[in-house]
Design a protein around this nucleic acid. Structure first.
Lengths: 210, 210
DNA sequence: CAGTGTAGAGAACGAATGGAGAACGTCAAC
DNA sequence: GTTGACGTTCTCCATTCGTTCTCTACACTG
């Protein structure tokens, strides 16, 4: 009856989740992987045998590495660290002017240095097209976007237009008018009534690989 | 560095990691490589035999140089001294066309994701000026440079001219001629005899903060 | 009530870690 | 050549650790 596929396993029990949270805490604090005794002590438990069963459930769920005599201590698997700021941000897809965001089939993350991030929650988009080429953003570049719903004039934003199209442009807002400015002489500025535009975030960083 | 072991090898044990940390401490203090006795004494151990086993595990993990009768003392391998700075590359200064690299007064490093790096040794430079603006490299950007002494035509290189000036340009090489091409119509291509040019590296990545 | 699931304690087993120390051979210094 | 330092290999021993299992207690459901 052991189902190896994590998607098909029953949901984690309360205790299993508590163990996972404890492990994530330790991971955030950069503690070495705890032995069963250490983990048990930190949770007020006395029996390695009992704890072992909880840990094995997490192993089966793909969240924890399997242990053995040579792999001691309870280690979280990569990606099970619960969005700590260890370096990876979600790559949500690609953005090309006038289209919806092309979501990826498999969720990905991308390492982004702290120096390129904003203070709030960030995500990454891949740029398609050259509408911002004069601002030094080329086709294929990654942009780091801080989730925000407002922006200052001149900031580069990811904007949702009419709840269906997404675009990356510089924004100029005045009462009754919202202008999205490209950085490419071959493209035209676009003007909208403010209620048609929804700012999804502001660009705070950019990266390119050659 | 904990994850530097190839897939399949068990992670370092606690003791092995403690030995590694002790070696890194000595490295930071510029101490000479300790003998097994010295290292053991500094860790409260009495047996060179036991310690030797830990050191050999670090050798197998590629973190420590192999010892023998002539190579005495425990030496960290290059790059193994930097524990928590595994993602950091040296920031060597800034590069503006026609000037020497402006070295920093205090050595700095910069976090650079693996995705932006080349296979070889890399360093980072800050760009000054806009001679490469049409290639999407703006004043203030960081470029990730892989140390190389040769490049293919069309690659962007950091080149030393006449052993004194440094510049960031696209390179075109033919017999008897070496051309450094800007990406800004306000700047002129420069031609040199090949022996006047020394390629310091090739640009493999770029980053910008807003 | 019986059955099921969760959760804990604790015992036992075997493997692995990690230590001490002895012995051997190599190497450099004298 | 001699000597001491040093790396290497090996044996032996103690402890830790993961794993498996049994038993018990509690809560919930039909």
């Amino acid at each position: 009856m052991e189902n190896v596929n994590p998607m098909g396993d029953p949901p984690l029990t309360r205790m299993q989740r508590a163990v996972l949270e404890r492990l994530r805490d330790g991971h955030r604090e950069r503690s070495p992987p705890p032995t069963l005794d250490e983990l048990g002590r930190s949770m007020g438990l006395k029996s390695r045998g009992s704890l072992h069963k909880h840990v094995q459930a997490l192993v089966r769920a793909g969240l924890v590495e399997a242990m053995d005599g040579r792999r001691r201590g309870v280690r979280l698997r990569d990606g099970a660290g619960d969005g700590d700021r260890a370096g990876a941000l979600p790559l949500l897809g690609s953005v090309a002017a006038g289209r919806p965001i092309e979501a990826l089939e498999v969720p990905e993350t991308l390492d982004v240095p702290e120096a390129l991030r904003g203070r709030g929650e960030c995500f990454v988009l891949r740029v398609r097209g050259d509408s911002m080429v004069d601002a030094g953003i080329l086709d294929g570049d990654w942009v780091v976007v801080e989730s925000r719903t407002s922006a200052r004039n001149g900031e580069m934003v990811v904007a949702l237009v009419d709840d269906e199209e997404v675009t990356l442009k510089r924004i100029e807002q005045s009462p009754g008018r919202c202008t999205l400015l490209p950085a490419n002489p071959a493209c035209e500025p676009m003007e909208y009534a403010p209620e048609r535009i929804r700012i999804q975030g502001v660009v705070v960083g950019q990266m390119r690989r050659y």
